[in-house]
Every structure is written in C-alpha cells, then in structure tokens.
C-alpha cells in the first residue's frame, strides 16, 4: 500500500536552517545537512529545503548545500525558493535534488510551469501555493506571503495541475507557525478537486493535527518544520501514532 509521507521542511538562509512564525521572526535551527541526516535516520520520507537567502552569495551556498545533501542522504528531496527560470530548475536537479518547488515565479508567469515540466518531467515539478482565507474564499499570496495576488486558490490549483505540475504543496498562511493545526477544510477541498498528490503545510502542532490532515483533509503527505526542529515531536513517534490510527506509513 502507498504510504502517507512525512516531510520535514528546512528553511535555509545563507547556509543555516531557520524557521519563522507566520512568515516572520526567524530563529536559528542549525546546520541543514546535519538536520537532514537526523530526519532521515528518524524515518522522514522526504525532505524539502527552501532557500530564503536574499543574496547571490547565499544562493551559491545553497546549491553547494544541495550537493552535500545529495551525497549524504538516500531519500528524495525537493528544493525551492527563488527558482524562476528553467536554468534554475536544471541547476537544482543537476546538483542532486529530485524535485523543485515553484511559487512566485509561477504566479508571475504561469507558463513557467509548462516549461519546467516539459524540461524535467511533471514528477519533478512541485508547485507551492501560499493561501490565506478571505471571508468565504481562499486567496493566493506571493513573494513569501507578503503580497496578495487576488487569485482564487482553487482556480489556481486547477491551472497548476493543467499546466503539468506533478504535486501541489499547500501552505495555510493563517496556520503557518501557529501549531494550531492544518486547515483541514482547505486541504479536503483541494484534494477532492485535483488528481495530483497534495502536500499539506502550515499549522502542525500535535500528532492529531497530522492525523486529521490525512484522514479528514485527505492529504497525501504532510510537511512540517518547527515541530521537528525543536524536538517537539519526533518523526518515529509520529509515525507510530499514525500507524496505530490505521494510516499506512513506512515504519
């Protein structure tokens, strides 16, 4: 049986892991390769590395880190953050990443999704969507959640799928960093709507939150950062809990 995936996410700035709350207030959480190896040993199914460096120097450091991760680990990983050309996509995969995650550049120029998936295959193209609730709808935000796009999240998800994305990574900005639980309603709505795998992100605080994202939100994978970085939840304990709740996981 295909198992549900647990994916720790590492935000990397100038070669160090950081994690903010509600997209702000960064705290230092250690060396990314060291953390990644620890997660892999604990049973992480995949990893995501987001480059939040603002400088060219920071980006070079990031690619070097990708090479180190690829050499050190034998599980799949995705890289994202600032990927805006097909060349960026190729560089990331050549450095050893398995997938790239596209966000702002895809919003600015949606045909970028087509280009990327034609070049490296849909299976290597994840599109990340940062979503905020506005009254009765969900809207998409861009540039690390700093600017609203006015786009409806459900319609954007449809388009992303049609343009050839292989996976959808959905972050609830309302929940991100709060440890108040995933936006289950958002997840369920999207999962019922699109036929590519859905990764839930934003809000994990407890074992039960992850269970709910999978059972109620119908997510195929769950991503979390702070709960893993600060040892609030261990991956192995989380997987045992999910297993005991009849969710297929790789133990």
């Amino acid at each position: 049986m295909l198992t549900k995936r647990i994916i720790p996410c590492l935000d990397v700035k100038d070669g160090r892991t950081v994690k903010g709350t509600n997209f702000l207030q960064l705290r230092d959480a250690g060396d990314p390769v060291e953390l990644a190896a620890r997660y892999s040993d604990e049973g992480a199914d995949e990893l995501v590395f987001l480059d939040i460096s603002a400088t060219l120097e920071g980006r070079k450091t990031f690619l070097q880190m990708v090479e180190r991760v690829a050499a050190a680990l034998q599980i799949p990983f995705t890289v994202g953050g600032g990927i805006s050309t097909v060349n960026d996509v190729s560089c990331a995969l050549e450095a050893g990443a398995d997938k790239v995650s596209l966000n702002s550049a895809a919003l600015a120029r949606p045909s970028f999704i087509d280009e990327a998936s034609k070049c490296v295959g849909s299976q290597s193209v994840v599109v990340a969507i940062d979503v905020k609730r506005m009254n009765d709808s969900w809207t998409v935000w861009t540039k690390a959640g700093t600017e609203p796009t006015g786009r409806d999240a459900l319609l954007w998800a449809d388009e992303v799928f049609q343009r050839g994305a292989g996976e959808l990574l959905v972050t609830s900005m309302d929940r991100d960093g709060t440890t108040a639980g995933y936006d289950v309603e958002l997840l369920r709505t999207l999962s019922n709507r699109i036929s590519i795998p859905l990764i839930a992100s934003g809000g994990a605080g407890t074992h039960e939150h992850v269970r709910d994202a999978i059972l109620l939100g119908k997510a195929d994978a769950v991503l979390a950062a702070s709960i893993f970085h600060y040892n609030k939840i261990s991956i192995s304990e989380l997987k045992s809990f999910l297993h005991n709740n009849n969710i297929p996981v790789r133990l």
């Binding site: 198992t3 199914d45 590519i196 790789r250």
Partner: peptide, 16 residues
C-alpha cells in the same frame, strides 16, 4: 487511471 478511481497520478512515495 485517475479518472475511474480516487488514484492520484503520479504514483509518488513509498510503497511495498
């Protein structure tokens, strides 16, 4: 076939 079932395609992840 993702149309006749609830299958997500690609088949992505750890399977037995």
């Amino acid at each position: 076939n993702s149309k006749q079932s609830v299958l997500k395609v690609p088949h992505m992840g750890w399977n037995q």
